[in-house]
Structure formats: C-alpha cells, structure tokens
C-alpha cells in the first residue's frame, strides 16, 4: 500500500513536471470553454433553460464536463509517443506498480483539468454565474472523477493502437456522440421523448445532471445519487481496464 502511494507519487511527479514545463498546455485547454462562455453564454441568458436558477447554472456545469470530456479523451496521445520512444516498456520492466503507472498519469491529468475548471469558473463568475460554493466544489470533484476515468480509457486505447493517426479518429467517433447525448450544451429535458430516452444510455448524462443539481444547491436528490453511482462504476471499470493494459501492454 505504501509502495503504491510512493510509486504513484513518483510517476505523478514525473508527468506533473512535464506539464509545468509547458505553460501553453496548462492554459490552452481552458480556452475552448472560456470562448463558449464569452460568445455562447450570452445567447442563452434570455432563454428559460432552467427550472430553477439561471441559464448560467445550466451552461457552466456542461462546460466543465466538456473540458473533462475533450481534454481527458485525448490524453492517450502522449503515451503513443512515449511508447514509440520505448519509455513505456522501460517503466514496465521495473518493479513499479502497474496501477501506479496509470494512476500517476491520470492524477496529473485530473489536477490539470481541475485547474482549468477553476479558470472557467472565475470567468463564469465574472459573466454572471451565481452558484453555491459547495456546489461548485462538487462540480470540481466530478471533473476530477470524469478525467480519471476517461483518461484511463484513453491510455488503455492508446496502448493498443500503434499510431496517433489511428487514435484521433477513434476518439472523436466516441466523443462526439458522448457530447451530444449527454446534454452538455443544452439540457436533455428540452429533448423530444426518444432522444431523452436514448440519452439515458449515455453514462455522462448522469454526471452532467448531477453537477447541474449541485449548482442549484440540490445535493440530496436523485440526480446527485445517480451521478455518484454512475461515476463510481465508471471509475472502477476504467481504472481496472487501464491497469490491465499496463500489465500486459501487447505490441
């Protein structure tokens, strides 16, 4: 257990230092959601999106998770390059824990995207978002959990493919429907019945609904309950998948 913690800290440190060296990467990820806030948010302020609260309380949770979705899903790119340099095999040949090889990386990713989420919230507050602090903190928690699970899956997929060219299109093919069906941009409550039903098969929808509930101060309802359950299941399945791939990364 203590070796797992120290192994994870070691791997985390290596990748965190790499991230800190690239200020570009740190801020660039927040650019897309901030642009949405500036040029898309104002369109929604006059619309009656929310049954409770303002449109900002509907839009901002979506943007936070969009940050996680698009950021984390592409994390695997880095490991394809590392694999080509032999770095992955070099680490796998050491006694370091396989779980730590994954966790060190995904925790770095989670730290990065939570930092960007803080930037997005600051801009959103300036634009007019008003939401309870505990709700916002819960939102960060969901961003972190979503990053950890998606990044794990992204690394797992990246360990199986051999070139970045085959990785990008695959990720996009999953991400686009995930974004549309989870109601990131507009709540699924606006959708016709069939679409609403379909979206219930998209796990991220429950995360989005939970964060929206948190932003209006509803911490004990079914949205939160489902959100937490789905997130826990996602975390478990994706971390297990990622670790398995580090254990026997094939080619």
């Amino acid at each position: 257990m203590t070796t797992l913690v120290s192994d994870t800290a070691l791997v985390f440190g290596r990748y965190a230092r790499q991230t800190l060296r690239s200020k570009m990467q740190i801020f660039f990820g927040a650019l897309m959601p901030v642009l949405y806030l500036l040029f898309y948010g104002p369109l929604l302020t006059a619309m009656p999106l929310a049954s409770r609260g303002s449109s900002w309380q509907v839009l901002v949770p979506g943007l936070l998770l969009q940050l996680g979705l698009f950021g984390a899903a592409f994390c695997g790119f880095a490991i394809i390059i590392e694999k080509q340099h032999g770095v992955v095999e070099r680490m796998r040949v050491t006694p370091v824990s396989r779980l730590a090889l994954l966790l060190g990386r995904v925790l770095r990713d989670a730290a990065l995207f939570v930092f960007q989420a803080v930037l997005v919230i600051l801009v959103a507050l300036a634009m007019g978002l008003r939401a309870p602090l505990p709700g916002i903190l819960i939102g960060f928690g969901f961003v972190a959990a979503m990053t950890v699970s998606l990044a794990s899956l992204s690394y797992a997929l990246a360990l199986r493919v051999s070139t970045p060219q085959s990785f990008g299109p695959l990720v996009n093919a999953v991400n686009m429907p995930a974004m549309l069906l989870s109601g990131l941009m507009l709540p699924m409550s606006l959708a016709p019945g069939w679409l609403n039903v379909l979206s219930h098969f998209m796990p991220f929808r429950y995360l989005v609904d939970a964060v929206r509930a948190a932003f209006v101060g509803d911490y004990g309802g079914t949205a939160m309950l489902y959100g937490v359950l789905v997130t826990a299941a996602l975390l478990l399945a994706s971390v297990a998948t990622g670790t398995r791939l580090f254990r026997r990364a094939g080619a």
Partner: peptide, 17 residues
Amino acid sequence: RRQTGYVAQSGGVDPSI
C-alpha cells in the same frame, strides 16, 4: 523485475527530459 536490468534494442528515454 527487481533483479534484472534491460537495455532495449531501441532504448527507452524521453527526448524532452
């Protein structure tokens, strides 16, 4: 793993580090 060292045919260091 504890007792072996391996130098791969194509190496294993990250060029950016």
